[in-house]
Design a protein around this nucleic acid. Sequence first.
RNA 1: GCCGCUAUGGUGUAAGUGGUUAACACGCCGCCCUCUCAAGGCGGAGAGUACGGGUUCGAGUCCCGUUAGCGGUACCA
Length: 499
Amino acid sequence: MTESVRVRFAPSPTGYLHLGGARTALFNWLFARQHGGVFILRIEDTDIQRSSEQMVQGILEGMRWLGLDADEGPFFQSWFVEQHRAAARKLVEEGKAYYDFTPKEQTDDRTLKAKIVDRARAQSRAGKEPNPFRDLPLEESLRRVEAGESAAIRLKVPEQGLSRFEDDVYGAQERDYSDIEDLVLIRSDGHPLYNLSVVVDDIEMRITHVIRGQDHLTNTHKQVLIYQALNAPVPRFAHLPLIMAPGREKLSKRKHGEVVSVTTYRDRGFVPDALVNFLALLGWSPGSDQEIISRAELIEKFSLEAVNKSSAIFNFNEKDPRDWTDPKALWMNGEYIRAMPLDELLPLVGDQLKQFGLWRDEYESTSREWLARTIEVLRARYRTTQDFATLGRPYFSDEFEYDPEAVRKNLKDERLKDLLAGLANRLASLADFTHNAAESALRAYAEEQGVKPGLLINAARTALTGQAVGPGMFEIMVILGRDRTIERIRRGAAHTGTL
RNA sequence: GCCGCUAUGGUGUAAGUGGUUAACACGCCGCCCUCUCAAGGCGGAGAGUACGGGUUCGAGUCCCGUUAGCGGUACCA
């Protein structure tokens, strides 16, 4: 009987779901789906001080939006603290771990990192000193603990030999036991520590493949030791290369803020499938030239063996508001907006229109066709669904700004004041206000007046939308309808020469 | 300091077991289309594969060294 695949995503709720975490979740999810396995969500909330309910909700929200549904969970690691303690006690009884009565060192986390390095440096220079409590007889240890003396529990790490495991991404891994210190399993205040907790939980949840960030690669040796001490089967491990910020900096929630938060992408108009597609290509490739890959194909083609070993840079530019995130991510999102069925795009655009106060109830009834057509016309030039509400505002509202640059370019000609007024009259007298009728009328009028049609077309576009760019001008007229077209052209005539 | 991981254009990636001028996508530039901007089509610039040594008829691919970046080194996760 072959044990079916069971994987988990185990974020700690000390911040929102960021892109690195999302990609880890995605790869776990893809792996599970591909193997018909189980994807488990476990929130590692044992760091009570830094965890918060709000962050938990944020993570859940992000995963739901991305469509990474868990088959089991969410479980909370804090539920299993007693089991973690019991496991440690068992190891002490079996002589595989011991009570360490060394008083706890005070650490202020200001200079924490430096302290760790200092200590490690001193140790590597002078050599490790054996822990005096490592071989204390069990009876004596228990007596002292019962007497109320506080002690941490440490794992006995072999003094000699080599730890090995095979990583599904990084290959064979080795580490000398002498480089691993007797790690603390349970703090002297009874609080179980990370390495113990994950292992006990992963055993309990019968995890078969641990897929997580590469920052855990070297610590995996410690965890393997705990599995062995607990007589539990060691799962397979696969570590994922890290995602870095420009300049090869670590991607940090604190430093890089919203660009790395999944919810930002939802709020700013990303299509979930597009972000999933983009994330999948960060550190993995199907081995072909294919860039646009559907979720179903991702499930089919994904493999841990094809995951890259080197870290990838997520290339956003904090200064440019138009290119607020990785240009390739924006391009890809545009591809999805262009290619996806209109029925699926409609509600996403609708959400943005609502967010910007541009929604009208008739878009769901009498104007549904109009909305669909308008989105169809606009989608070729937008990269996020939010663009419909910002760049596309003139199509949904009469209140919009005239871009000074566009006015200067298209409405500065003095003759336009009369020409536009004349054009408005011509359009008003049209029997049928259609694309072709409007175009014929405009071209005929231009010829009569001895001007190039382009002059009137570009002027009209700016009069109608305040912009110098946009869809074909007669498309715009049809979208706006006769009344608004005429009104805006007259309004535009007033703008001529204002700048 | 010690241990480990990594290294292909600006970015993301290709280049089965070493085999012709290192490929694709994004971005950038130009042309076509055209009433503008996109989209689309076509083309261009941009790396000789971090550096230095080997092995080999032949190395981005194998080996060694160096450098750089990253990770770990905690009674954090």
